[in-house]
């Protein structure tokens, strides 16, 4: 479904990704793991076109979208929640969702799906998004990314900085979402990621150094060494 082939991405002159390749199949949950600064976020941003790769290709259902404008990706079914959640704090929850609905071509605020996983958002519709708690903002960010028909949802650290109870809430939602939508997630909480994921990629120094199923990570101490801070 979503395929990344040998991408090289730069920030200015610094070379960040050195030929990253990965693939997300239908209804699959894929975790992208690794220590801080190995290029996980850059990989996600490259897929979204926010930092387009200089070399390599990004394919969605076989179509080359490497150099498509950013806004085209939402329309072809890729949702993205950045690490900082990217909500519009000065706009209401309703407005945050309406922009997403307009963006994917469902003007008038057709975002019923958003409430399927987070019904509690309904009561906050007229509130300013900046007034919501961290957990509620994360729910809004995920709900907003799901507006329209999304085939792949990309999540950058969806549980970061959240209370354990809220982490459970988000985890539960991710499981529900993954029944229909493929998920690519970066997650610092390795245990959580291994529980949720069907497959795992591990990055180191801008490269993929491991690809396999969660059990292989649990069984292999060498692979685990890529994840812990030594």
């Amino acid at each position: 479904m979503l395929e990344v082939r040998d991408i090289h991405t730069f920030y200015g002159d610094s070379h960040i990704l050195f030929g990253v390749s990965l693939e997300i199949k239908e209804q699959e949950v894929v975790a992208l793991l690794g220590r801080n600064g190995v290029g996980k976020t850059t990989t996600l941003r490259s897929i979204m076109g926010l930092t387009p790769p200089k070399k390599g290709t990004v394919l969605m259902n076989g179509e080359d979208i490497t150099h498509e404008p950013i806004h085209r990706r939402a329309k072809i079914g890729i949702g993205y929640v950045p690490e900082d959640r990217g909500i519009f704090p000065g706009l209401t929850v309703h407005e945050n969702l309406t922009i997403a609905a307009d963006g994917v071509g469902a003007p008038g605020g057709n975002y019923e799906d958003a409430f399927k996983f987070f019904p509690e958002l309904g009561k906050y519709l007229p509130s300013r998004a900046g007034r919501l708690s961290g957990g509620e903002q994360q729910m809004l960010a995920v709900a907003r990314a799901l507006v329209g028909t999304k085939h792949v949802l990309i999540l950058d650290e969806p549980t970061q900085g959240l209370a354990p109870k809220v982490v459970d809430r988000i985890t539960h939602a991710i499981k529900g979402i993954s029944k229909k939508t493929s998920i690519l997630m970066v997650e610092q909480n390795t245990d959580l990621a291994l529980r949720l994921a069907d497959r795992v990629y591990i990055m180191r120094d801008g490269n993929i150094v491991f690809s396999g199923v969660p059990q292989q990570v649990r069984d292999n101490e060498e692979v685990q060494s890529y994840l812990v801070i030594s």
């Binding site: 990706r73 939402a74 950045p82 990217g86 922009i99 307009d102 990314a145 507006v147």
Partner: peptide, 10 residues
């Protein structure tokens, strides 16, 4: 960035 990510042609 996020406006574009949500599909709006900025």
């Amino acid at each position: 960035e996020m406006v574009q990510v949500l599909g709006v042609n900025i």
